[in-house]
Design a binder for these strands. Structure first.
Lengths: 120, 120
DNA sequence: AACATATTTGGCTATATTGCCAAATAACCA
DNA sequence: TGGTTATTTGGCAATATAGCCAAATATGTT
């Protein structure tokens, strides 16, 4: 690994770290549906205004969102449009794993589904 | 946000946290090209064997990799095939941002390129 | 069995990340 | 101007994460 490779990896890590928090991931998923103002997150997530504000700053510093102030409110929206599809892919994988685990614990729950799949 | 939504978000966060470290991201990118054994990472990254081993455990617990032991070596490979394309998208975005920043600092460096783009 | 190699685990300290509170800004309203 | 709302910033304590060392395990070799 040379200097430049390491630098690029670290830059990507900043983005991933920004995504790697429940509240911030929630915010990103909300923004995938369109811009929102800070207060909307404060309502949805049960957290202090300052906490949300700091999370948004992390996202902004990582280049994931951009903001603009209109009146007394600040609106945030996504930059980096590839995020939603990626997060979706993770969601699918996670759900598949959860299903596997459930199947190991109680296979009977999945009998009907297995039969359906066999008929395809 | 209800209980189930929160649960799903947290599960995704586990995956993202696993990716959000330079060494682990490096490992994932290496594994995108095929399976590797632990010792190969120890050589490439300048870190203790135990450190690499722990990073691999984090990746495994998050469901990103699977391993199997052959002889005295343990080989790891990717599960979740959507990862490489996503990481690539982040890389592209990060590089674009870096280019923008460089352009603000020294616009002259990009004159030739701008001219080329204008002729397209 | 004794030894070497590859890897994991336990434990501990150093560092980074959270989240809350209080205070500062900024825009709007009376 | 004084007050209200929306948001950011500074500071701090609690928690989580990282990386090193030493010890444990597992496999293969002599």
């Amino acid at each position: 690994m040379n200097q430049q490779q390491r630098h690029l990896i670290e830059a990507k890590t900043v983005v991933l770290k920004a995504l790697a928090h429940p509240t911030r991931l929630y915010i990103i998923e909300e923004l995938a549906q369109g811009e929102k103002c800070v207060c909307e997150f404060v309502d949805a997530v049960k957290a202090d205004f300052s906490t949300i504000s700091k999370h948004l700053l992390v996202l902004k510093n990582a280049g994931l969102v951009e903001d603009d102030k209109r009146g007394q409110q600040v609106f945030y929206r996504l930059r980096m449009r590839c995020l939603p599809s990626f997060i979706n892919c993770i969601g699918v994988a996670v759900a598949a794993d959860a299903r596997m685990k459930a199947m190991q614990i109680n296979p009977d729950l999945f009998e009907a589904q297995k039969a359906a799949e066999a008929n395809e």
